[in-house]
């Protein structure tokens, strides 16, 4: 554990809580991609299967359970409780275009050809692209509410901080995990365009982010 890793985890948690509270308080999930949230729930589910096989630390177990619970709560709010406000007509990203290559790649490129390892690899690859339906939705509608953009900012910040964590671990422990690093860099790159818009429009202008 180092400061980048801890800050990354906190940032990830903040992102998820911002989204959940936004939906809960406004009683609306307008502008939120349910597809991205289902993909994130799938990411946590397939990655944290090791909850049943190994014990790493209390911190690790608690965070995993919290992430799982919050991601399922978010999906529940979008598709059940506040489904009337869900903009399914704008959430039209074809997730099979993500799932098929990600499943294929996790079978081809993994650390061991065992179910748990393949599912772990699948979760790492899927996380890298899971935000695409949400970004696609914003591009399609041309705008995003400021709270949605704060959510995306913390979600992008989380992976960027993890990269700093991996650089730190490489130098201090001579340790690196190529699958995690390559996927993490790809994931962060997807946020770069958004980060630019966030700093130039949302933080200066306050209010909605509109695309040109």
């Amino acid at each position: 554990m180092n400061v980048f890793r801890l800050a990354g985890d906190v940032s990830h948690l903040v992102a998820i809580i911002i989204l959940l509270l936004k939906i809960w308080r406004s009683k609306s999930c307008a502008g939120i991609s349910g597809k991205s949230q289902v993909l994130f729930a799938l990411v946590f589910t397939t990655r944290y299967l090791d909850l049943f096989t190994v014990f790493i630390s209390v911190y690790n177990t608690v965070m995993k359970v919290v992430f799982l619970a919050l991601s399922y709560a978010t999906v529940y709010l979008i598709y059940m409780r506040f489904r009337n406000s869900y903009n399914s007509e704008n959430d039209t990203f074809r997730v099979e275009f993500l799932l098929v290559p990600v499943i294929g790649l996790s079978f081809l490129e993994n650390y061991a050809f065992t179910p748990l390892e393949i599912l772990w690899t699948f979760s790492i690859f899927l996380e890298a692209v899971a935000i695409m339906p949400q970004l696609f939705m914003i591009t399609k509608t041309g705008e995003a509410e400021s709270i949605t953009t704060h959510y995306l900012f913390f979600l992008g910040l989380y992976r960027a901080l993890y990269i700093a964590n991996w650089v730190w671990r490489y130098h201090t422990e001579s340790f690196y995990d190529l699958i995690a690093i390559v996927s993490g860099v790809v994931q962060t790159i997807f946020f770069c365009d958004f980060f630019y818009l966030y700093f130039t429009r949302v933080l200066r202008g306050r209010g909605k982010m509109t695309l040109p």
Binding site: H12, V54, N60, K64, F67, Y111, N165, D177, A180
Partner: peptide, 10 residues
Amino acid sequence: KKDNKTKDEL
């Protein structure tokens, strides 16, 4: 052979 050291990450 790779060990499982990133698996302690979330």
